[in-house]
Simulated assay, not measured.
Amino acid sequence: MSVQQRRERERADRRRLIVQTARELAEAEGWDAVTTRRLSELVQYSQPVLYSHFKGKAAIVAAVAVEGLADLAATLRAAREKATDDVGALRAITHAYMDFAAKHPAAYDAMFVQPIDVTFGTGESPRALRDAFHELATVLEPFAGERDLETFTELGWSWMHGLATLTKGERLRPDHADSRLELMVAMLSRS
């Protein structure tokens, strides 16, 4: 391995460590606890080293968001692949989506609530975002009928996001979570 390759590998490792540490800190203590000073201490690199990888906290949050989107895409794919029929696949991804949001609240917040410089809804969107959207679209396609699939997918995603956000904020009756998901599956799967 050349010196240049070793340096590039070390730089990529540092970047991964910073993102992983930011995500873990945010999951444990919330995004307010994530500062470049605190990250610098935790990863044992100076703040200038952090700034050589990221312009600031917003860029770190964006990196966590993209990583979270990749994890969400993999989670949705696994749920979809286990299903035996179209309605079962829709039911599986709605449950997987809600479980992901509940288990990874800081990553979910970075993905969909925090202001980040990530393009959504275009061909310039990060691959991880396009992959997550593709998983949703794949499951919703049998139910879209003559409707535009991307618009139908955006609506389905919006419903899931709304339920996840309202559930996290304890704004919905907790004993009706399953019935809400079943109703959403029934409404989306109507032709």
Rank of each mutant, 00 (worst) to 15 (best):
Lys168Ala: 10
Leu163Glu: 11
Met160Pro: 12
Arg173Trp: 07
Thr122Ile: 08
Met1Ser: 15
Glu24Arg: 15
Val34Thr: 02
Phe54Asn: 01
Ala107Trp: 01
Gly30His: 00
Leu183Asn: 11
Asp117Lys: 14
Ala106Gln: 02
Phe133His: 07
Val185Glu: 06
Ile116Ala: 08
Ala89Phe: 08
Pro142Val: 00
Thr84Gln: 10
Phe112Glu: 05
His176Phe: 12
Arg171Gly: 06
Ala186Tyr: 13
Gly162His: 09
Glu24Gln: 15
Ala28Asp: 11
His104Ala: 13
Pro48Leu: 05
Tyr51Cys: 10
Arg91Ser: 15
Thr165Lys: 07
Tyr97Phe: 01
Ala63Asn: 11
Glu81Asn: 09
Ala101Met: 11
Asp86Gln: 09
Ile18Tyr: 01
Lys103Pro: 03
Val19Lys: 10
Leu17Lys: 05
Arg7Thr: 13
Asp71Met: 12
Tyr51Ala: 09
His176Gln: 15
Ala132Lys: 00
Glu141Gly: 00
Gly169Pro: 12
Ile18Trp: 00
Met187Ala: 10
Thr94Leu: 14
Met98Leu: 14
Val34Phe: 05
Gln4Cys: 11
Leu163Thr: 08
His53Thr: 09
Asp131Ser: 04
Asp148Thr: 04
Arg7Ala: 15
Ala177Lys: 10
His53Tyr: 06
Ser189Tyr: 09
Leu17Arg: 14
Ala65Cys: 11
Glu10Asn: 12
Phe133Lys: 07
Ala28Ser: 08
Leu188Lys: 08
Ala12Ser: 11
Leu69His: 09
Ile93Met: 14
Ala164Asn: 03
Lys82Thr: 13
Gly30Thr: 07
Val113Ser: 06
Glu27Trp: 00
Ala59Glu: 05
Lys57Val: 12
Leu140Glu: 00
Thr151His: 11
Tyr108His: 03
Leu39Arg: 04
Ala65Ser: 08
Met160Asp: 09
Ala132Asp: 02
Arg15Ile: 05
Trp157Asp: 11
Ser46Gly: 11
Asp13Glu: 06
Ile93Thr: 12
Gln5Asp: 15
Glu135Val: 00
Lys57Ile: 04
Val139Leu: 02
Arg15Glu: 12
Leu183Cys: 03
Asp99Val: 13
Glu124Asp: 15
Pro142Tyr: 00
Met184Asn: 13
His134Trp: 04
Ser125Thr: 07
Leu172Trp: 02
Asp109Ala: 02
Glu170Ser: 15
Thr21Pro: 11
His176Asp: 09
Arg130Ser: 02
Pro105Gln: 08
Arg7Asn: 12
His53Ala: 01
Thr35Met: 14
Ala186Asn: 14
Leu39Asn: 08
Arg91Ala: 12
Thr151Val: 13
Phe143Gly: 08
Ser158Val: 10
Glu150Ala: 06
Ala65Glu: 03
Phe152Pro: 04
Ile18Lys: 00
Asp131Lys: 06
Ala132Leu: 06
Ala110Asp: 03
Val118Tyr: 03
Ala79Leu: 13
Met160Thr: 09
Ala22Leu: 14
Asp175Cys: 07
Ala78Arg: 08
Thr84Ala: 15
Gln20Phe: 03
Val61His: 00
Ala12Asp: 14
Ala144Gly: 04
Val87Tyr: 03
Arg180Glu: 00
